[in-house]
């Protein structure tokens, strides 16, 4: 049985970025730091490693899901034979199509609930998240370089907006309760 590799990041041997040349030179020659020289981030291009990791996961998924078709075909033949024996004649093409649909659906449902599929999903999640982080990081650096809002900045804005929204609604609830109090007090005075 094919087992999925545990979800990991791409091997360290993959090149992860364009070599920060200035940092290397500075380190080798023990040069002082210059404040206005271009920083390391500007040179860092997105690494292809997470993308290759994602492609690898997709290929492994294809490998473990291929046997579904063999299993479905075997079940289909068995079911068609069973129906032929029961009915005394071979099923027609419409009946065969129905058998195929049901058998394939059932086989795929069983696979979707299997441990293999679960491991595949975990690996896919990790690989996709790594790819997303890599691309997100690259776009973020580019956005900073051209003075555009970044995802981090926008998320911060949304968080503050959300907190303000909560505050506003809490205040509205307090005002509503306070408005009700004089009415309730007046009503109880009248009853007294």
């Amino acid at each position: 049985m094919k087992t999925f590799a545990a979800p990991t990041t791409a091997p360290a041997a993959w090149p992860t970025a364009l070599v920060p040349v200035l940092d290397e030179i500075r380190s080798a020659l023990k040069l002082p730091t210059f404040s206005d020289m271009p920083g390391r981030d500007l040179f860092k291009l997105p690494s292809p490693a997470p993308l290759f990791g994602l492609i690898q996961v997709a290929q492994e998924y294809a490998a473990i899901s291929a046997p579904i078709w063999i299993k479905a075909s075997e079940r289909f033949l068995a079911e068609a034979k069973k129906q032929q024996e029961a009915g005394g004649k071979p099923p027609d093409s419409g009946e065969l199509l129905d058998i195929w649909n049901n058998v394939l659906d059932l086989t795929m449902m069983e696979f979707n609930r299997s441990n293999e599929f679960a491991r595949a999903q975990q690996a896919l999640l990790h690989a996709a998240a790594a790819q997303r982080r890599e691309i997100g990081g690259a776009v973020e650096r580019l956005a900073k370089a051209v003075d555009m809002p970044t995802r981090t900045e926008m998320t911060d804005v949304y968080r503050r907006l959300h907190e303000l929204n909560r505050e506003v609604h809490a205040l509205r609830r307090e005002i509503r309760a306070l408005r009700r109090e004089p009415k309730a007090a007046a009503s109880s005075k009248r009853k007294a």
Binding site: L106, M109, E110, Q121, Q122, L125, H126, A129
Partner: peptide
């Protein structure tokens, strides 16, 4: 039942940390 409750099975197959990751 193999045709019921797929979401329940799928989500329990990933860890809470993986939900956070997603």
């Amino acid at each position: 039942r193999v045709d019921h409750g797929f979401m329940n099975v799928w989500i329990r197959n990933i860890s809470p940390e993986e939900v956070d990751l997603m």
